[in-house]
Design a protein around this nucleic acid. Sequence first.
DNA 1: CTGAAAGCGCTTACAG
DNA 2: CTGAAAGCGCTTACAG
Lengths: 361, 361
Amino acid sequence: MRGLSPRERKRPVNSDGPGSVKRPARPRKRTLGRATIADVASAAGVSPMTVSRALKDSSLVTKELRDRVAAAVAELGYVPNLAAQTLASARSNLVGVIIPSLSNSVFIETLTGIRDCLSVAGYQIIIGETVYSADHERQLLSTHLSRAIDGVLVTGVELDPDVKRSLEQRSIPLVHMFDISEDPEALSVGFSQWQAGYEVGKYLMARGYKRPGLIAGQLDPRSLKRIDGYRKALSEGGIAQFAEILTPEATSIALGGQLLWRQRVAWPDCDAVFCVNDDLALGALFECQRRGVQVPKDLAIVGFNDLPYAKLSVPTITSVTTPRYEIGFQAAHLLLRQMTGQPLERRSIDLGFKLAPRESA
Amino acid sequence: MRGLSPRERKRPVNSDGPGSVKRPARPRKRTLGRATIADVASAAGVSPMTVSRALKDSSLVTKELRDRVAAAVAELGYVPNLAAQTLASARSNLVGVIIPSLSNSVFIETLTGIRDCLSVAGYQIIIGETVYSADHERQLLSTHLSRAIDGVLVTGVELDPDVKRSLEQRSIPLVHMFDISEDPEALSVGFSQWQAGYEVGKYLMARGYKRPGLIAGQLDPRSLKRIDGYRKALSEGGIAQFAEILTPEATSIALGGQLLWRQRVAWPDCDAVFCVNDDLALGALFECQRRGVQVPKDLAIVGFNDLPYAKLSVPTITSVTTPRYEIGFQAAHLLLRQMTGQPLERRSIDLGFKLAPRESA
DNA sequence: CTGAAAGCGCTTACAG
DNA sequence: CTGAAAGCGCTTACAG
């Protein structure tokens, strides 16, 4: 300790003087026994502030003190208390991420992108699943607010007005993902869902399919936009009546099979189906295989998102490749710039999508 | 406010007396403008403690005050600051969950089970992905420690000794998931991975397959145990040499196809393959279909975990159903009891597994 | 049932 | 470059 007298841990001492009328409460120990910054400080023979600085930005502290601090940290197994840090600095280094569902693997890569971008900047993420419910979303945001998040990433461009207000009120930066906001003020990273649906429709028409149908579950805003774009393309191709099965049920491979068959029964003359996501498409493909419907000869199938199995199934599934990882990464990057007050080149980033023609259509 | 004089927000006032030598620092505002418990208190005409109590356990406060507090909370849009709560109470209401990977959908249901159990008890979870690396796991735990987690749920029964020590040191409850610990002290919820592999081997032998092989990626401890059990069953059936392709590569549907073919080339006489998980099995099935290998006639396929597609693919995939949701729920429940100091009926819970014979084997 | 005081473990904002 | 003081927004532990 190089002759430096270690400082005492400062705690008010109960010097109950003779003049005191009421007996003041004794100082109470409420500590957990974990090493604190004060422990490190006294072990290193410096002030807590020096420890704090050495830990944050070592360039502010001389090498000698820095080394002493490092040694003390290692020796005591000191782990900073982020609750205290958050309270004192009013920064949590926490970013809230709101996604519809973890079971929809579409969002997993996005989470990875977010994490890859944010972790190097020292941020952690807390994930909230809305389960496609606005109520849940509101609830989640409130929880996130109580954790004092520094920013939020939310799936979709539509947001509950109350939620929006409380974020603005606290000036918590927000970036939308998976779609492009119409609001010029809003930050968003994604692609045009409508356009993607439109191009699927155009593609099927161009391939010569005469009677394309559609199956969809979930019916979240993004699916609805794809459906809308798809319809537009069909109308432009002269198709007036849509052969669609829509249901609010949660999407799944199993649901794909069910919807496909309902669709077949209702419109046996359809020669193609757009499944608004790949899980539905895979389920539809399995159902066709089981029922002896040849894909694409009897029925063409198009999925959406290009999940890993789309290029591996037999036949491979025509789908739309979406930049899921990139959406997460870029959205996080944009949020980072906003949180740190850096200038933004643009407020919305359209990452596009890509139709991937394969064997099924 | 019913004639009650709202209390002033107590902040030290700069009464710089004439006797003072140095000018004391002015009190500094560092607040964010968000309503605090003190704001609610003065709006409701009560003390902060009453607000705190009304919010936590309303039975401690008279209905009248409770209502006044509720009104003030609503009016001010008060959201409690969990960082302050954590710091003051030394409880974070945060549970750390360590899983290998979010992209492996096996763990998603487990997360749901955990959340379902913990959320009603008022706990939030923070997820850490180890990416199957012990280093990452150590790092994650350290981050979780700095967030002052009240408990941890970790995948697998093996744990870095350092990590274990620092958890014990802080007496943070820990429950292992997905396997049964041999350590009688440890808490664990899962099933016997070894036994599951063993039964797959027995099943294939019983079905008359003469030359069963195996493909595996990842090679995490649980896969290795399954492999081990599988080998044991084969040995007992008189098979001395194993037709296996093992690789540490991350598991995926695509990898399943590759490994299957390598396995075929190396051992063309194999009549069955155990794929240590369903993704490998699905990839293997696709590869067979593409290569014209009939399943199960030419080659039987068994997967593991019984993911949704296993019962939907054509042919359906024989697999082992694992209680993933239940593991999460029960593990969380056990952790909850441990965290709240309730007695434990048993320290390890074997939830079992179930072989699901289907078309592929 | 209610409240005043002190403390949780950090950092901000100063001062030197 | 370093440190002493005060404060962040809650709760604990008392006292009445």
